[in-house]
Design a protein around this nucleic acid. Structure first.
Lengths: 165, 165
DNA sequence: GCCAGATTGTATGCCAACGTACGGGTCCGC
DNA sequence: GCGGACCCGTACGTTGGCATACAATCTGGC
């Protein structure tokens, strides 16, 4: 999909934005591929690592962190809980809230995750310098900003201005 | 090598790879947001544009091109066909194959797609120079190569070198 | 106190992808 | 020709996301 190696697929609309989307999907797929050995996907691993590093959090926080909706995070936590990796503890002052904490098994898995992650990082960064990564990060930041403007604008074709930059 | 920038305190999910994935997902979402006005998503628009530019293609080709499976492309084409945007024509020499072609309505929609796309491009590229986009493309190319190596390697943790060079 | 409004997590239904299995069809070695 | 290997598109069940609607709960104005 990221076409450069595939001359056949180079239509006019295949711009860098599309390559970015396809490339990122592939990075995610590769990550998931490696994570499969600990029966986790990237979102699950991110959640686990977050809870491991920052302690108990409520589900809404976790949903924002992982970047999926509250409903989805709920069923995701269901699965992790069923596997004994996290626990749901009641919030002392707010009976609506579950504080999601990690178990010792969860922590053990996070350790493995870090190992896998380190190897993944090494491989994926081959031939990519630190400087380039920093440039990429900077670019992504601006991209994110522009995209936010688009997402919060009406999808009517003539709308240009949006809220602001 | 140097893990200076990544002490254990910087959790994996804050790395640039993760930002890339999240950023790209958002770009795709924004694209879809804009495309909603013509009731298309990015994959559908890609397919339509491809058929428009390159003429009739069989479904397997289209699946590879869009980057989804053959089963998925089938139901996708079902929907586009039901909307009268594409047609399935029998292959003259191979009765297994459908040649997916575009209708005049489909072509009209592709025109709108190009319009929307141009506007999208303009907005998303704000504050991002052409040079940066080229660097990004180059980086993505190498990333894609590295990722391919990962995807084609076994996911067993001990595998470091990959199959071979 | 107490009711209106906001917020948390859950239930439900929808959607679009996946992987697998399969039937129909083609092609190649014999 | 013919039989088996292979290829194309489809059917099926699963997954994991979404959006919506909802009950329970908290909060703040009065």
């Amino acid at each position: 999909m990221v076409s450069i190696e595939q001359p056949r697929t180079a239509p006019s609309w295949r711009r860098v934005e599309i390559a970015l989307i396809a490339g990122a999907r592939k990075v995610a797929a590769a990550f998931d591929h490696r994570l499969a050995q600990i029966d986790l996907n990237l979102n699950q691993a991110s959640l686990l690592a977050f809870v491991n590093d920052f302690g108990e959090s409520n589900q809404t926080e976790l949903a924002e962190m992982v970047g999926i909706g509250r409903a989805s995070i709920g069923s995701m936590i269901d699965r992790l809980e069923a596997r004994g990796l996290v626990t749901r503890n009641p919030h002392p002052n707010d009976r609506r809230v579950w504080l999601v904490g990690i178990t010792s098994e969860g922590t053990a898995l996070v350790e493995k995750f870090y190992e896998i992650d380190a190897g993944f990082q090494k491989e994926v960064r081959r031939d990519i310098s630190r400087e380039e990564r920093q440039q990429l990060a900077s670019l992504l930041e601006r991209l994110d900003c522009n995209v936010d403007a688009i997402l919060s604008s009406p999808n009517n074709k003539q709308e240009r201005g949006g809220p602001h930059a």
